[in-house]
Amino acid sequence: MSETANRAEVALVLVSHSRDLARGAAELAGQMAPGVLLLPVGGTADGGIGTDFDGVQAAIEQGTADGGSVVVLTDLGSAVLTTESVLEFLDDEVQARVSLADAPFVEGAAAAAVTAHGGAHRKAVLDAAEHAGHTFAPHPDAPPPDAPPKPTTGEQAPLDDGVARAQVTLRNKLGLHARPAAVVARMLAGYDAKVRVNGVNAASVLELMKLGATEGHSLTIEAEGPQAQAARDALVDAVESGFGEL
């Protein structure tokens, strides 16, 4: 088609466990949006059912060549895992131009292709995919649900219900990754207090890590018990010192 001379800015990578399914989705979306580069990656390298790390990587590299951006759609479980892993291996500069959609495979591919065909940017294409049907799983890049949009630092609400509260903003780049999460959990073990951070148990390293909270994220601290204030203050100090990583 003549429109292929005028490629859309966003390419789609369609990752499926099945070669036929990926190709079929690309065929369908391609008919609706001929001006979009559609890169199906289905099945394992030897044609079986599964996902192919190298194939997904090659498709994303092809889609992002020449400064283009990519929205990836996937089908089941390990297609998502494989794609996320490929993203982790990419250079940051390339990674910044790729989005993984939390969207139904066929409907999402069609909606995204149509939007991309209209010349939309990556965010709009992603949005189109993600509003194409029901959401299956939490989006991997979604911020913690209770992260307030405008964080404040060190502001402490008055004590009237026995709960010592504080709100602090993470200052170290990686936020509550494994080491600081372990520091927090170990530190709080020394206090006779129950402490929650953004609603999760601050004594649990895994719960803290699962918040996915990084630099700039606001943490809501709530402490209860005989040493609630001391525990809260210690935690505020640790966060504000960037866990020694500043």
Binding site: T44, G50, F53, T82, E84, S85
Partner: peptide, 18 residues
């Protein structure tokens, strides 16, 4: 491992080692 294991174990172990 990422390229050769496949399934969920490939990305999980691959990410762990990375």
């Amino acid at each position: 491992l990422m390229s050769t294991v496949g399934g969920a174990a490939g990305p999980l172990y691959g990410t762990a080692y990375l």
